[in-house]
């Protein structure tokens, strides 16, 4: 499922790199808060374990064999953010030292396997773990989570290949989903078997989430949010439909579409930047500019409201004294 170089277009590479970068910044912060100065030795050694674990081929039914991906296994014992870091390290090493997965597609591979796979799988595990609190229920939740992590990652991979125009949606999505639904069964069985042994021998190793996440500074939240938003814009802009929306369709049908009047010339009319010939690049740039504009307006309003609230509080204090 590691996408090589040359399979994704520039916008998808940039978009996935932005989203993955924001996700990794969040994971790094969470891991440091949980593991403190133990982060580097723990994540480094556990990356070596996951890498070694991925080399182990298990006998699966029908004379075939499968291997562990390890995302949910790492998340169950180290927590989701540390598991994201572990899988990212493994993916970076596989990319640079074993040429498994491309450099330009590293953002996409990290997004699929380390972020969507791990966080999606861990979310399913937490949800089902609450519903099935018994020992067997927990193991069943881990199995379903491991299966979901593989299928979710494969669907994300298929979506990126389709968005890039490499393969058609109707071909790549069913092919990837069906293949990985079968691979996911192997992942689920192996993960449950390994987790059940570790829980039996060292139950204290199971990760317990902290009651509260560490506070995020406003500046960091803004930077992560903006980078992730740019990534989403770059990824989803090629999917924007050129067809009219509901109101425009009704207006065309009943013949009052021509009555629309522009109050002032719009700088980014129809979500395109004037002067740029490529329609997809124009839509992407318009999306990025729009994101910045909306952010600027929201920032200005929030700052104004904050000042207004402070001046009100100061006035109330003066009246009280």
């Amino acid at each position: 499922m590691h996408i090589p170089d040359g399979f994704l277009d520039a916008a998808t590479c940039a978009g996935t790199a932005c989203v993955a970068g924001a996700g990794l910044a969040w994971a790094g912060r969470e891991v440091k808060a949980r593991w403190s100065d133990q982060t580097v030795p723990m994540v480094g050694v556990m990356s070596a374990f996951v890498f070694a674990g991925q080399m182990v081929n298990f006998p699966v039914a029908g004379g075939t064999s499968g291997h562990l991906l390890g995302g949910v296994l790492a998340a169950v014992f180290l927590g989701p953010s540390a598991a994201v870091m572990v899988l990212t390290t493994v993916l970076a090493v596989q990319c640079f030292f074993f040429q498994d997965g491309g450099v330009t597609a590293l953002g996409a591979n990290v997004l699929n396997l380390a972020l969507i796979g791990v966080l999606g799988g861990y979310g399913v595990y937490r949800l089902l773990g609450h519903l099935w609190p018994s020992e067997r229920g927990q193991l069943a939740a881990i199995g379903v989570a491991a299966w979901c992590s593989v299928v979710l990652a494969s669907l994300a991979c298929a979506a990126e290949l389709a968005i890039s125009g490499t393969v058609a949606w109707k071909l790549v999505v069913p092919a990837m989903a069906v293949t990985h639904a079968v691979i996911g069964i192997g992942e689920a069985v192996i993960t449950v078997a390994v987790v059940s042994f570790v829980r039996h021998v060292r139950p204290d190793l199971v990760y317990r989430p902290a009651a509260r996440s560490p506070a995020v500074s406003l500046r960091r939240a803004v930077v992560y949010g903006l980078v992730a938003s740019f990534g989403v814009v770059l990824l989803l802009a090629p999917l924007a439909s050129a067809l009219p929306d509901g109101l425009e369709r009704v207006a065309e049908r009943f013949g009052f579409a021509g009555r629309a009047m522009e109050a002032a010339p719009a700088p980014l009319s129809d979500y395109s930047v004037p002067g740029i010939m490529s329609p997809s690049l124009s839509t992407m740039l318009a999306g990025v500019l729009g994101t910045l504009l909306v952010f600027g307006i929201a920032w200005g309003i929030s700052r104004g409201l904050q000042r207004w609230a402070r001046s009100g509080e100061a006035g109330a204090r003066t009246d009280a004294t």
Binding site: V45, F77, V198
Partner: peptide, 24 residues
């Protein structure tokens, strides 16, 4: 054989975790 391989991998996980703690 499958169960024994999975248990061995679980044991490797525990030893790797303990090694990380020792190294730290």
């Amino acid at each position: 054989r499958f169960r024994s391989l999975a248990n061995t991998l679980g044991l490797l996980f525990i030893r790797s975790y303990e090694r990380a703690e020792k190294v730290h």
